[in-house]
Amino acid sequence: MNDLTIRIDGLRHTYESGVEAVAGVDLTIAPGERVAIVGQNGAGKTTLVRHLNGMVRPTEGAVHIGDWSTSDKSIAELSHRVGYVFQNPDEQIFARTVEGDVGFGPKNLGFEPEQITESVMTALEAVGLAHEAQVHPHHLSLSERKRVAIAAVLAMRTPIVVLDEPTTGQDEDGVRLIASIIDDLTARGTTVVAITHDMDFCVENFERVVVMARGTVRADGPTARVFADQPALEAAAVEPPQLARLARVLGWSEMAVDPSGFVDAYERRRRG
């Protein structure tokens, strides 16, 4: 387990254009926790998480990663603690080979040569692209490039990993792969913060959900409880996961996280 608590206090961020993307957020994320951040496009999710590695600085308030305030550390310094996977892999990938791109982070973080090779290969195996190590990233499909972008951050072995929309463009196997990567990260004690629009993915892989709307947090808590909070979800225009919607139509008060859980609840009801 890592020992870095993420602490966001009274955070506001206003862009030069005058848009206030984050309008007063307080949030504490414990070491090793996995938290999903959901909300409509434009709700301020990306601006919020970009504060975690200093790519965006607070206009007001503060963000702490353990004992560091992000306001007085460079992005590069913060990268020792926080890895960040961009939503669009093409904004991130730049090297001539997949291996070179994935090795960039470990190299900058001062890994030993053999450690670099080892972490790169492990990361590429985790995303199922070890056989493409020597390929030019532009020859891969968009969904493969997305996995290269994830590997590039895994290889850095940071105690905190931020994922912006990790499942976009992924097919069924891709989504499952990303879910297993998150499990591996948790097993290592890594804190995982992810933005996602995929509510099924969210409910099955995150124990805690933060719902955002208009730059503020509208709901925050255990996944099952948040997805039962209909008024908050409606206010944030967040559609609950499919099984939660079904349970609601059926008039159930509780919510099942996954198909098996749903069938268990169904069986209980049938028995009376």
Binding site: A76, S79, F94, F104, N108, L109, A152, V153, M156
Partner: peptide, 8 residues
């Protein structure tokens, strides 16, 4: 993105 991967 490069800074986010440790480039100073």
């Amino acid at each position: 993105a490069q800074q986010a991967r440790g480039l100073e």
